[in-house]
């Protein structure tokens, strides 16, 4: 029995239960997809399903990584020019950018007023305030981060300059 399982593993690459579980999952997903196929717009659903994967893996994540590498390179340039920072500023930029970016990503429709006609029909209100609200929230996050940075800087200064400066 054990050797049969080992032979199976050598051929398939995992325990037989692995195959059973995966076939079960694929069957369930196939059944659900078959239900959606009968509905209007089924092709669009498939397109959105695939596009969601591509947008996350090939657009959002690479864009975020590139932006971060750009930020790191910029700060390296600043360091060459002005010398090492007493308090690293990197995460004081990263955090509000991430916060603001997250809000833009999630609330993109109301911020750019996409689909406003259906919003007006549902609520009786326009989407006018949202862009301003997003800018205010983003501004507040940058401000709080900057205050935190100023505080750390002041503390580092008052603690004296005996400690060697940090890399960033």
């Amino acid at each position: 029995m054990a050797s049969a399982v080992a032979r199976w593993r050598g051929w398939y690459g995992a325990h037989p239960l692995h195959l059973l579980a995966l076939l079960g999952a694929l069957a369930l997903a196939g059944y659900a997809a078959a239900g959606a196929v009968g509905a209007p717009g089924a092709v669009r659903m498939l397109v959105w399903f695939v596009a969601a994967i591509l947008a996350s893996d090939l657009l959002l994540q690479p864009f975020a990584a590139l932006a971060d590498r750009g930020l790191l390179a910029t700060l390296r340039g600043v360091r060459r020019w002005r010398g090492p920072a007493r308090v690293p500023v990197l995460n004081h930029i990263r955090v509000p950018v991430l916060g603001s970016g997250l809000l833009l990503l999630v609330f993109f429709p109301v911020i750019v007023q996409q689909g406003e006609q259906s919003y007006i029909a549902a609520t009786g209100l326009t989407m006018d305030p949202y862009l301003e609200r997003w800018l205010l929230l983003s501004g507040a996050m940058f401000l709080i981060s900057a205050l935190g940075y100023a505080l750390r800087l002041a503390r580092a200064r008052s603690a004296g300059t005996t400690r060697s400066p940090q890399p960033r």
């Binding site: 509905a39 429709p109 259906s118 549902a122 609520t123």
Partner: peptide, 18 residues
């Protein structure tokens, strides 16, 4: 939830089977 029906299919149906 933002009333943006840009996807062009029935939200309920797609969200349920999805």
């Amino acid at each position: 939830i933002q009333y943006d029906y840009v996807f062009g299919f029935s939200f309920y149906t797609a969200h349920y089977y999805g």
